[in-house]
Amino acid sequence: MKHFITAIILTAFLTSCNSSDKTTTTTEATETTASTPKAPNKNLQPIDTDEALIATALMAVPEAGRANCKIIGYNMAGEFVTLKEGDNEFIVLADDPKKDGFSAACYHKDLEPFMARGRALKAEGKKHNDIFDIREAEMTAGDLTIPSGATLHIYYGAKTLYDAETSKVDGAQLRYVVYMPWATAESTGLPANPVAPNHPWIMNPGTHRAHIMISPLADDATE
């Protein structure tokens, strides 16, 4: 009888040990997996050629429109040129290699007169507020137009390295602007200030430059 009881106790002890070992092993495996650092992207390199400017600018364009879009902007020599010819509805302003960070903007071709006017005024040395006031007056007079609903896609980030295989810029995100001249919070039902990331709101309400802003979530950055 004593041998029988001893056998039962020994079996229970071994079962308990095995169960404990499995729990410990599972926990350690989970902790190891959670703490494993992400491997650095070895394909990252500087945007230092006109070809790289074109490739990264295309990331601002909806994929279906990339082949036939037009790309303009400063080349590596500092000249404002057409980097890529195109005839669809998209025009892309490539990143300026002389500025910090990265920013490429894709917009509907009907926005080009408005965008070109802004570039011209800036070239004349006009400041942001002056450019705003001048274009406001020209829009009011009917000398300049912005099609309601025309969209601007901004691909931007603080870093200036890109993946040569995918053309994606390290950490870059997309922000969207939908132009609605003279619209207000009351006419659209949108808040006049951001409520939360990725929520639409109306900026510059009641002006020629009124537009819906849609900014990305913080964790939407490209890896």
Rank of each mutant, 00 (worst) to 15 (best):
V177F: 13
A116S: 12
G149A: 12
N88T: 04
M180V: 14
F114N: 12
N198H: 05
H128L: 15
G86Y: 05
T32K: 08
R66Q: 04
K42G: 00
I5C: 00
R175I: 04
A77E: 15
A7Y: 08
G157W: 00
A137Y: 02
F114Q: 06
T26Y: 06
D220I: 00
D163P: 01
D48H: 07
A141M: 01
A150V: 14
S215A: 15
F90A: 02
A64I: 09
D130N: 06
K99T: 14
S103Q: 15
E85C: 01
L144Y: 06
A55Q: 14
A150R: 06
L58G: 09
F13R: 07
S148R: 12
A183H: 06
A67Q: 10
A7C: 10
A12V: 14
H208T: 03
P194H: 13
S215K: 11
A116M: 13
P37W: 09
H153E: 05
A192S: 15
S19V: 12
A185D: 05
L83G: 02
K70Q: 15
G189L: 05
F90N: 03
N204C: 05
E79S: 11
K22S: 05
T27W: 02
N204F: 02
H128M: 14
Y107Q: 05
D163H: 04
E138P: 01
A105M: 13
S187Q: 09
K126C: 15
F114H: 12
G206Y: 11
A141T: 01
R119I: 01
T11L: 15
Y176D: 04
T33F: 12
N43T: 08
I5F: 06
G125H: 01
Y155D: 05
A164S: 11
V178P: 00
E51D: 15
Y176A: 00
N204V: 02
D95P: 00
E89Q: 14
F102E: 09
Q173A: 11
K84M: 07
K22E: 07
D143C: 00
N68P: 04
K159Y: 12
G101T: 05
A94R: 10
T30P: 00
T207Q: 03
L53V: 07
P46C: 10
M139Y: 09
L44S: 13
I71L: 03
L144C: 06
E31C: 04
S103H: 08
E63I: 07
I202G: 05
K168P: 00
V178A: 04
D50T: 13
E165M: 09
I146F: 01
M76S: 02
E85F: 07
D130C: 00
S187I: 08
A67T: 14
G101W: 10
T33N: 12
L93H: 06
A141H: 01
D110I: 05
T33A: 15
N41D: 14
A55V: 03
T184H: 07
L217T: 08
A218S: 10
L152P: 01
N129A: 10
W182T: 14
T30V: 02
D96A: 14
T49A: 05
E31V: 13
Q45T: 07
S16V: 12
A105Q: 12
M59W: 01
E89F: 07
R209T: 08
K159D: 13
M203I: 01
L53K: 11
G149L: 04
I91K: 10
P147Y: 02
R117Q: 15
P191Q: 11
P191F: 08
K2P: 00
I47K: 09
V195N: 03
P97N: 09
N193R: 12
